[in-house]
């Protein structure tokens, strides 16, 4: 078959190509460029091949940070998703309560991340912070600065406080889109509260839950600002997540090659895990 080539059409896609090139391809290629070379400054580069990748993949530091990331994301998801659903189920469906609840829910989402970190950093301090001081006065041995468990607890509670609202809002949107007739039909059938949740609300929320799950996974897996502000990665290395380690390596130690290799690996892990979650969750959708 004869194809007609309209060469003028290339000009039409040019702006998009430029935009994508400058926003994604060029920065990414810079990182790729660093990851396969070594430099000692003066703009002198030496070919390093896959050395940096091998080095990163063989360093305990990387695997430990990755382990912390996975643990953190797992805890965050297992708290925020069920809690978000629970709150969404108990939100008012009509009346003055709706806007009030929605605004209250949206408030934490409107606060910049470093401010959230600062709030909790101060809030949790045992000398001047309301939370830390109160806990101490009540006899709890709480100090996030030198206790690993307390540091993790603070970060998790902070993240739950900050981000559960997102899950709530998404689930709530899914819930209000269910026609009243579904609930009536279930009532006529004599279905239990659990059956209504399991067979009507949950399937109807499935799509928004998938989005909530992916967003919360990606965000929690890339967490940087809050632990940086609150714990600075400590005590010891106990809250040094991949992102914090990466910045230490790139900016602190100026190891550009290993840092570039690590960011590529980091990026590929997020991509891979997100793809796995998406595939698993949407394929179960088709079966169900």
């Amino acid at each position: 078959m004869d194809r007609t080539w309209n060469n003028k059409a290339w000009f039409m896609v040019l702006p998009v190509l430029l935009l994508v090139a400058f926003s994604a391809v060029i920065p990414l290629m810079t990182v790729v460029n660093y990851s396969v070379q070594d430099t000692f400054g003066n703009n002198q580069f030496f070919w390093a091949g896959t050395d940096w990748f091998v080095k990163i993949l063989h360093s305990d530091r990387f695997w430990q940070a990755l382990g912390r990331n996975l643990l953190f994301s797992a805890i965050i998801l297992s708290i925020e998703i069920p809690l978000g659903i629970l709150i969404a189920l108990n939100m008012p469906k009509k009346g003055i309560g709706v806007p009030v609840c929605l605004v209250l829910m949206a408030l934490p989402l409107l606060i910049p991340w470093n401010v959230v970190g600062t709030i909790w950093q101060v809030f949790g301090r045992v000398d001047i912070g309301l939370l830390g001081f109160t806990l101490k006065a009540l006899g709890f041995d709480y100090n996030y600065v030198n206790d690993v468990f307390d540091a993790w607890l603070t970060l998790i509670v902070m993240d739950v406080w900050h981000w559960t609202s997102l899950v709530v809002l998404l689930c709530y949107a899914g819930l209000v889109s269910i026609p009243e007739a579904y609930y009536q039909a279930a009532k006529i059938d004599g279905a239990s509260r659990w059956a209504v949740f399991r067979y009507i609300q949950l399937p109807k929320m499935k799509r928004v839950l998938l989005i909530a799950f992916l967003l919360r996974f990606m965000d929690s897996f890339m967490i940087y600002t809050e632990p940086f502000v609150v714990t600075g990665g400590g005590p010891g290395n106990s809250t040094t997540f991949l992102s914090i380690d990466l910045v230490k390596m790139a900016i602190g130690q100026f190891d550009l090659g290993p840092a570039a290799a690590m960011s590529l690996i980091y990026f590929l892990i997020i991509l891979l895990l997100s793809w796995i979650f998406y595939t698993v969750m949407t394929s179960s959708d088709e079966q169900a």
Binding site: Q184, I200, P203, K206
Partner: peptide, 15 residues
Amino acid sequence: SVAMVYQQFINYPAM
């Protein structure tokens, strides 16, 4: 002992 059918098609979506 009541059964009802609606204008919208109401079934359990995941069953």
